[in-house]
Design a protein around this nucleic acid. Structure first.
Lengths: 212, 212
DNA sequence: GTCTATATGGCGATAGAC
DNA sequence: GTCTATCGCCATATAGAC
C-alpha cells in the first residue's frame, strides 16, 4: 500500500519535510530535496512553483502537528489531572519521534513571524476556543495567582524544551550518551507529571464551600 | 567612552552579533553585517577570514551569555530556595533583554551539534562541576524520584521557552499584544517561583531526623 | 586599514526536448 | 510528467589601488 508507488507529489513532500525541518528554510537546498526524493530538481518547480511555496506546505503541516495536538487531548471529557497526565505522555512521545520539530518551528517563527499571521488567517485556527474548555475546569480550582496561561506554558515548556535543547543538555548532563538521554526522556514523563500535579495541588484553592 | 570611537573590530562584532542572532548563520548576509557596522564588506574578511570564523566568535559569545550565567548564580552561598528564586528573576530579565538569543542558540546547536564539541574543548567548560555544588544541597532534600536533572531542566524550560516561543504564544494567548506579553513575562517571575517552590516542597523528604 | 572592482561558485528558476 | 541544459542573480571571497 505504501513504499514505492506513492505519487511523486507525496514523495516530494516527504523529502522536503525531512530537509526543511532539519536545515530550516535558509539552510535547505532544492537540490538536496530533489536527491532525497529521487527525482530531478526541475520537477520540484513543476509541482510547487517555488521554494517558498513548497516550504509553506511543509511549515503548515509541521505546525499542525506541533500545536493543535494540544487541543485534541485537552477537549476529552475527563478530569483535569487526567488531561494533564495524558497530554504529557502523548506530547513527549510525539516529540521524541520528531526531534527536530521544536527547534524548527521555534526558529522559523522567530525569524519570520509573519508566517504565523498567514497561517492563522488561512486555517481560521482559534486556539482560544480550545482553551475555554480547560478554563472552565480551572476556574475556582487554581488560585488567582496561578494564571491559566502560566500553567499551560509551564507544561508546554517542560515537554518541549528538553527536546529542543537536546544536543546541549545531552552533552552537559549526560556526557553525550544518546541512549542515556532517551532513558531520561522516558522517565521524564513521570517526573513532569509528578512535579506538575504537585505544583497544581499546592496552588489549589478548595472550592469555597463547594455546593453551598 | 563609547559610541563612535570603538575600534573597527568591535563595531564589526556588534553588528555581526545583531545580524547572526537575528537571522542565523544561513540567513545572515555579509553585506548586511557590513552595512550595520557602517563599513565595507571587504573589511570583514580583513579582520575575520571568513563568514564561518566570524560566526564562531559570535556563537561562542552568545553561548557564554546563555549558559554559564547559570553557574554564577548557583554557586552563591545561600539557601536553595533563594538560589532558585534569584536565578529565575535574573535569567528571565537576561532573556527579555536578548529575546532572540534562545531560538538562535537552539536552532544552531540543532543544525550543527559539532559546534558544541569544539566549544566544550576550547573553553574547557565543565558544567558538571558547577552542578556539584547544587547537588550537595539537594541530596536528601528531594526524593529519589525528583532527579536533580529533571529539576534543573524544569526551571530552565520555564524560563527559556516562553521567550523562544514568544511570537507564537503572544499571538495565541494574547491576541498579539506586545505590551500585554511583556507584562505577562514580569508576572511570570513570581508565577514560576511559586510553582517551582510548591513542586519542590511537595517532593521534599523531611531530612530523616535532621540532626540525630 | 579601508576602499572599488572583480573573480568564482552556487542557487533558484526556466526553456525546451522527449 | 520527467528529464537535460542553461540563464541570471547573488553570495562569499580575493586582488589591488589608495
Amino acid at each position: 500500500m505504501k513504499g514505492k508507488d506513492q505519487g511523486t507529489e507525496q514523495k516530494i513532500l516527504e523529502a522536503a519535510r525531512k530537509v526543511f525541518v532539519r536545515k530550516g528554510f535558509d539552510g535547505a537546498r532544492m537540490q538536496e530535496i530533489a536527491d532525497e526524493a529521487g527525482i530531478n530538481k526541475a520537477l520540484l518547480h513543476y509541482y510547487f512553483r517555488s521554494k517558498e511555496r513548497l516550504f509553506q506546505m511543509i511549515f503548515e503541516q509541521a505546525f499542525a502537528q506541533f500545536v493543535p495536538a494540544l487541543g485534541r487531548i485537552l477537549s476529552r471529557d475527563v478530569s483535569l489531572e487526567e488531561k494533564v497526565s495524558a497530554f504529557i505522555d502523548q506530547y513527549i512521545d510525539l516529540l521524541m519521534e520528531n526531534p527536530y520539530l521544536p527547534s524548527f518551528i521555534l526558529a522559523e517563527i522567530s525569524r519570520d513571524p509573519e508566517r504565523l499571521s498567514e497561517l492563522f488567517l488561512s486555517t481560521g485556527l482559534n486556539p482560544m476556543e480550545r482553551l475555554a474548555t480547560m478554563e472552565g475546569q480551572l476556574k475556582g480550582t487554581l488560585s488567582e495567582r496561578a494564571d491559566i496561561r502560566h500553567f499551560i506554558i509551564n507544561i508546554l515548556a517542560m515537554c518541549i524544551f528538553p527536546i529542543a535543547a537536546r544536543p546541549l543538555l545531552q552533552r552537559m548532563l549526560f556526557e553525550n550518551d544518546h541512549q542515556a538521554f532517551n532513558l531520561f526522556l522516558s522517565e521524564r514523563k513521570e517526573a513532569v507529571k509528578t512535579f506538575t500535579l504537585a505544583g497544581m495541588r499546592a496552588l489549589t484553592i478548595p472550592a469555597p464551600e463547594d455546593k453551598a
